[in-house]
Write a protein that binds this DNA or RNA. Structure first.
Lengths: 148, 148
DNA sequence: CCGGATCCGTTTCGATACTG
DNA sequence: CAGTATCGAAACGGATCCGG
């Protein structure tokens, strides 16, 4: 039987400012599952983040290397935030959170399309991989697009 | 290719007060990996939670059905907080967080025993299952012990 | 008009002292 | 030991302003 991890200056601390913050979590959700990229898009989320908080969290995420900020090639006034590899690697965490919600939270269960929750049950790994790939692909495409 | 989950009153909201809060996350870590059960034990954690916050978060966790509060059979003045099934189901989430940390955060990498991080790489599912089983077993034993 | 920065009133949080 | 009460500090929401 595995011993508890115990001791050590405590794992998880690294994740506190990430998962210990409501707004950061919401932005990551938007990045991964809603495929949002722009400041304006994040602002539209129903939770109603305010401008200062959003700017602050985006800066934090950039500082921590989870996202990168690029000019928007469609509109030179805008910017685009893309998940880095490190950010993309959070997909499994988010998916596990959602799986938990689907199992134990009625509201979450209802909020998520049936085919998705079925997929989560039958093939979570596949779902995770596809989501990651899709995020990575979008990023690559965008960067190529931007270079041209 | 999987479509993004998109739309719906947004998944994840259910998890905000859980994962959107630093202290809650730390308590859950203690419950799962440090096998802590008592108020005093949580207080000892190096992050230094204060009494009111701890009391508040424990109450929240009880209200949300993640833990249950029982009298301590060793010491009638004390209490014991045990993860419910719903709480135990968070193990995969925590493990994914740690896996992410081990990959992308130097501090986390160093904080976690080598054999654990090796295990996480080679057999995360097994590790998760063992951890869950172990949590469940401890709970059952405690409840039996309490009844006697 | 878009992506912020700044200021400010309010709420929430958390450290400390204190209590049953 | 397991909390509550208090009170200062920090975070937040909202409005406003500003540079491109």
């Amino acid at each position: 039987m595995t011993e508890p991890i115990r001791r050590s200056p405590c794992p998880i601390n690294f994740a506190l400012e990430l998962f210990g913050d409501k707004w950061t979590l919401l932005i990551i959700r938007d990045l991964i599952f809603m495929r949002k990229k722009g400041y304006g898009e994040f602002m539209e989320s129903p939770e109603g983040i305010s401008t200062n908080i959003l700017a602050d969290r985006l800066r934090q995420l950039v500082d921590n290397g989870l996202i990168e900020k690029y000019p928007d090639h469609n509109d030179k006034k805008k910017f685009v935030y893309l998940l880095t590899e490190k950010g993309e690697a959070l997909v499994p965490v988010l998916v596990e959170i959602i799986r938990w919600g689907v199992q134990y939270d009625t509201q979450a269960k209802n909020a998520i399309p049936i085919e998705v929750s079925a997929r989560l049950k039958s093939d979570a790994m596949g779902f995770i991989e596809e989501t990651r790939k899709s995020v990575r692909k979008e990023r690559k495409q965008y960067l190529k697009w931007l270079a041209s």
